[in-house]
Design a protein around this nucleic acid. Sequence first.
DNA 1: CGGACCCGGTTTTTT
DNA 2: ACCGGGTCCG
Length: 790
Amino acid sequence: MNVWDEDKAPVPQVAAVPLSQRATAARGAPYLDDLNPAQRAAVEALDGPVLMLAGAGTGKTKALTARIVHLLRQGRARPNEILAVTFTNKAAREMKERVGRLLGEVAEGMPWMGTFHSLSAKILRRHAELVGLKPTFTILDTDDQLRLLKQLIAAANIDEKRWPARLLAGLIDGWKNRAWTPEKVPSSEASAYNNRGTELYEAYQARLKTLNAVDFGNLLLHCVTIFQTREDVLQQYQRWFRYILVDEYQDTNVAQYLWLRLLAQSHKNICCVGDDDQSIYGWRGAEVGNILRFEKDFPGAQVIRLEQNYRSTGHILAAASGIIAANKGRLGKTLWTAGEPGDKLRLIGHWDGEEEARWIGEEIEAIQRGTRGHEPIDLNHQAILVRASHQMRAFEDRFLTIGLPYRVVGGPRFYERQEIRDAMAYFRLAVSPDDDLAFERVVNLPKRGLGDTAQSKINQLARAAQVSLLDGAREALAKGVIGGKGASQLRAFVDGVDRWHAVTFHPEYDHIRLAETILDESGYTEMWRNDKTPEAPGRLDNLKELVKALEQFDNLQGFLEHVSLIMDNDTEGAEEKVTIMTLHAAKGLEFPVVFLPGWEDGLFPSQRSMDETGLKGLEEERRLAYVGITRAEELCTISFASNRRVYGQWQSQLPSRFIDELPADHVEVLTAPGLYGGGYGAAAQVGFGSSLEDRVSKADVYNSPGWKRMQENQSHRPMRQPQEARHVVIDAEALSPYVLGDRVFHQKFGYGEIMGIEGDKLDVEFDHAGTKKVVARWVIPADQVDEVPF
DNA sequence: CGGACCCGGTTTTTT
DNA sequence: ACCGGGTCCG
């Protein structure tokens, strides 16, 4: 396939454009001028349902923003009559900026551009009473949610050990994703959580209502409930939102789908943008079905495909297309590029994960200097994309050793950090002293001598009197049920909260000063100053940053609302760094140079994914591979290792089945220059002692095109035969060269005796290191120690 | 109340 | 291997 040959590229249909609009364009609307025909069609098809199928790197955000500008310029809607939905705050922010730029400075107004959750919160505040809430409801994050569930589980006399709260939380989230209120959970789910799932779901919802709180799922669920039960309210919004736009439609779950369908039902001016090939969030409730079904849901929908890719070179694009072609049930797109074929995608195997990290580190530095006819590419333009975050460690270790600057994207977000959440709990108490969850979090933080006993007293009193925990604490103090030093400290805490709360009503209330006062008077900053652990200074910095963030808000309330829905993690400096992140986090991003390590069956595709959802899971993994490759603009390198330490145990790994799916014409197989001869030899013999199933799948690998390709590549290359290769011979001669009782030698553990054999793994009782499970390849017969040095 | 020790789980992540 | 949570004991 010659994907970069423009002549063979399918020519998208251009929708008929009314004369009036052509006139506008001709008069020079810059936002229309630099669109390709497909993008332009997507921008100009304003009325009725439109599905914009936008492949990776085809300029979908450009089209989406141009469409918004077009709606405004054409006078179809005022800024506040357009509902534009994204998944992340980052995406919403970017879209606002881009629209603002296109419109020329007028970035304001577009109040209904935001995430599903922030828009739902906005709507829900106006109609809170319809679902039994007050408009001031608080939004709980997953941590609060979990603690609440734990309480309910304990109250229901369930052993949280056997039935973890996480499990229940997952179930409830799943039900909410499907827009099931407790009454609507189908009976097929009745056995969930030891038959008590629905019961606890109901209790949880009731408890949230009492707390005047919602979790993330409830924001959507409550909105859908209101839309479904109150025709008048729904109609009001249907009239208000004349045009609806949705980004990343392939990631919507059922609740979000209903939310959209209800709102779009009357006028059907809904434009959904997405790419079924980039649906990678099925595990958290996203339904690819939503996008696959669009034309059925909205009869007469126009489907516009954006297929010209502006990001990647021809070989990269072709390799990605080759991989994704193995998936069934796609809507189908043919990406093409008018650009250069560029370099073939590179494939390389390594002995183990450390070797892989070492090689990639060197390669990154070489590319940074400029190699093989490439201009130097700086570190900011290079990225390593991994399947699972634990893979990052090998790279961090290596890069620290060689002093290669890197940045890890992901990890806990700013607002999820412990110190931020603690501070927020204090703020929440100041704003609403009845916030019991906040009370529980900080009543003994810093330590105030209020342990379990004291807290359960407070709890009892509060429950008996049907009052908040803060009032329960007052009661406890009045009754003198709290012991000595705890009592005086509790007194100070309660008084503090009262004082802070009072300030929020003061005419000269300055929320920034108040925040500082709270953190000071509570002893919270003091606590971290006295903390000698290495992360304490960072936490104090974060607290400062938190206070600084308050400047952008008028009061604490506004800030709390904002933070409960928003993450801001973009505090990275300008220093040049390689990016390390997960494939999931990389969606929507692009880099000139991309490394995709760890392409090994079980790791990628992830075993768990395949076990849990079978073919569906495998296809999602394949889309993840597609997402990974399509992040690369110029150079994409896939690698795998033959051995990897998994949960502390060495494991033999097989190259990923996705490697065999790469179209050969677009791949160059590299041989690692290191001591290990590239590791293919190693890959060839791993697992010979494993289970029957393993051997069967191994045979498949040997017969696969990808494997043969690599063998060919090997054959005309004089490969160094290092120590490992000799072990290969030993391993290959017999399933296991050892029998019970054999004396062996291990480089790290020394001499020992084999006590058990399980496939290629041996239980060895070492003379000085105790009993360990080791891979046979790592030991040699004790009597050969002198012959085969390590 | 805090520190030492044991046990279990371990993909991906947003709001 | 490593982390978090729970338990036990000083």
